[in-house]
């Protein structure tokens, strides 16, 4: 029995000839990302159809709850309405992350978050925002000077720790999702082997036939999937979002 975990499938390769960027690959990651975006946008459109001031529908209540939760999350963690402009960004980050993590539950799609490119992209955007916020708070010189504190010797370490922020954010999220993929793959493979061995004990053609169907794969992986997909998926999205808010709020305080 062979077991292999591979990266996202490549559907189409467009040679560009640009040195560093390389060929454009239409991968599963991108396609599923677009599906995720379509789902989120469709949900937004569906929830906000027919809004009323009074006697609201359940759908509108959900929409309002989502908006209020996002507002409260950002406002409570940054202490005020100073960062209200960040709310749509943070919401987009969270929604995309959650839906991307959970879309693997369909069994058809591979999570776009199981590709480091996705998390790296998000982390770099957040890193640029943090840096911009720091420069805005202390000026470019203040930002530079921040690296030499508390003493000049610390400068290399400060730069390292600054760069570690996006790397750790990206790798934390990616690692958790990938570990879910790996563990689930292992479980399925192991259960297939186990059921093959178990039903292979039945003599004759019946056992031969039944041993090819992984009966044990029904049910048991669902329990593990509850942790690795549901819990971990929502948790990682939340952590990524919270870190984004925290880092940006801290950066603005200088």
């Amino acid at each position: 029995m062979e077991f292999d975990i591979s990266g996202a499938r490549i559907f189409w390769r467009i040679p560009t000839g640009i040195p560093i960027l390389g060929d454009f690959l239409l991968t599963e990651t991108l396609v599923v990302s677009w599906i995720v975006m379509a789902i989120i946008t469709g949900l937004c459109v569906f929830l906000t159809r027919n809004l009323k001031v009074e006697k609201i529908s359940k759908r509108q209540a959900v929409a309002e709850l989502l908006v209020e939760s996002a507002n409260n999350l950002v406002r409570n963690n940054t202490g005020g309405t100073k960062f209200d402009r960040l709310i749509p960004f943070v919401s987009a980050l969270f929604a995309t992350s959650v839906v991307s993590n959970l879309i693997s539950l369909t069994g058809i799609f591979r999570s776009p978050t199981a590709d480091l490119s996705t998390e790296a992209a998000w982390a770099v955007v957040v890193f640029i925002m943090i840096t911009a916020e720091k420069i805005k708070a202390g000026g470019i010189l203040g930002y530079m000077k921040g690296f030499t504190e508390p003493i000049a010797v610390m400068t290399p370490f400060n730069i390292l720790s600054e760069l570690a922020t996006p790397v750790s954010m990206a790798c934390r999220h990616f690692g958790n999702i990938l570990s879910g993929v790996v563990i689930n793959g292992l479980i399925y493979a192991a259960l297939a082997v186990a059921s093959s061995a178990l039903f292979g004990l039945i003599p004759g053609a019946v056992g031969e036939f039944l041993s090819h169907i992984p009966f044990l794969s029904v049910g048991i992986p669902a329990i593990l999937s509850f942790y690795f997909d549901w819990f971990s998926g929502v948790m990682q999205a939340f952590i990524f979002t919270m870190l984004t808010i925290m880092y940006i709020a801290n950066a603005a305080e200088g």
Binding site: G22, S33, I40, S91, S117
Partner: peptide, 26 residues
């Protein structure tokens, strides 16, 4: 398939754009 742990430049750029498009849509 692509490698399991890798950063594909175009995917990286596309995902940044996707994030901002999603932000705008939301």
């Amino acid at each position: 398939t692509q490698a399991l742990v890798t950063i594909i430049p175009w995917t990286f750029i596309a995902q940044i754009l996707n994030l901002f498009i999603q932000m705008y849509l939301i």
